Amino acid sequence: MIRLHHLNQSRSLRTLWLLEELGQPYEIISHQRNAQTNLAPDSLKAVHPLGKSPVIEMDGELYSESGAITQLLIERFAPERCLRPASTSTDYGHYLQWIDFAESSLMVPLLLELFTKKSGIVDNAFLDSYISEEKHRLLNYLNTMVEGKSFIVGNKLSGADFMLSFDLIMLAKRKQLDNYPHIKQYALQLASLDSYQRAMRLEANHDETR
């Protein structure tokens, strides 16, 4: 059985949703953020040296990094379910691009925005300008690319949607999707899926800060 080390309000939501979609038996090992620092607890460091989530245990091995876990679980348990395009298709390159986009290009300004707020940095003209302009540039691009689509690649649910979901949750929580109607509609479409809703209920049940 797969064991998911799940940290509340973290990238682990991607893995939680994917596991619900796959229908594979799994167990949630819940870890809670420190109420004062919002950082991951030491219990995660006892599982993996980096002390981050998600981490899964499978076949006696530990795996970290949400992008790698997403691809690993899909390759292992859903090769016939089209949760990724065939490697020989033109969509496959776009699939890999969007997986990386979610965790690299788009995540950078989102994390910078979070860290500057948490640290109390104010009136830093360079940082404020970079975050605002880069985020707007990236979201304009994503907004164009999801216009008229329910899913980001080939209009079929894929690992790229699972990866983007956490970014969208962060943006929705900050009420930053109103100016990007196609992204907002795309996010609502993902949120309408049964597996997504089950995952969000599990997240709520395992989040002691709510």
Rank of each mutant, 00 (worst) to 15 (best):
N8E: 14
E65G: 01
F151D: 08
L4M: 02
E57D: 14
L157T: 06
Q197I: 02
I69M: 10
H136S: 14
G148A: 06
F166T: 05
F166H: 02
P181F: 03
Y26D: 05
L96C: 09
H182M: 03
K173L: 11
S89P: 00
I2V: 14
F77M: 03
K45A: 07
S195T: 05
S104M: 14
I69K: 04
S53N: 05
N143I: 01
A187H: 12
W98T: 02
I28G: 04
S89R: 01
Q24F: 13
E65Y: 06
Y141I: 10
L16D: 10
K118N: 08
Q32G: 06
C82R: 15
F126C: 02
D91E: 15
E27H: 12
K117T: 14
L16I: 04
L127G: 00
L193S: 10
L19W: 11
A199M: 00
I152C: 05
K52E: 12
V108P: 05
R84Q: 15
H48L: 03
Q32N: 07
E133R: 09
Q36S: 13
D178H: 05
K117Y: 06
M163V: 07
S158A: 08
L7C: 05
H31Y: 11
F101N: 08
G67N: 08
N205K: 14
M145L: 10
E75N: 12
K117G: 07
G148I: 07
I169K: 13
D100I: 13
Q189S: 11
G23V: 03
I74D: 04
L110T: 04
S195L: 01
L202E: 12
R14Q: 03
L157E: 06
L164C: 05
R210A: 11
A46H: 14
L139G: 05
G23C: 02
L39D: 15
H48Y: 09
L112G: 12
R198Y: 01
D128L: 01
P25S: 01
R11H: 01
V55S: 10
E103W: 08
L19H: 13
M107S: 13
E21I: 03
H94Y: 12
I56P: 11
N124V: 00
L188Y: 11
D128P: 03
S10C: 09
F162M: 06
T116I: 09
R14G: 01
L168M: 11
N124G: 02
L157M: 12
A204C: 08
P41W: 00
L193M: 14
S192D: 10
D207M: 01
T70Q: 04
L16G: 09
V55P: 07
Y130I: 01
G148L: 04
Y63R: 14
M145I: 09
Q185V: 09
G120F: 10
F166R: 04
K45Q: 07
A160N: 06
L157F: 03
K117D: 15
K135I: 09
L138V: 03
N38E: 14
T70S: 14
A160M: 06
P85E: 02
R137T: 07
R14S: 00
A78H: 12
A102K: 04
A191S: 15
C82F: 15
L193N: 05
L83I: 05
I131M: 04
T116D: 06
A46Y: 12
L164R: 04
A78N: 10
E134D: 13
L114Y: 12
K118C: 08
N155F: 02
S165G: 02
I2S: 00
I56M: 00
D128F: 02
N140P: 00
Y141K: 13
L190H: 05
F77Q: 09
P109K: 11
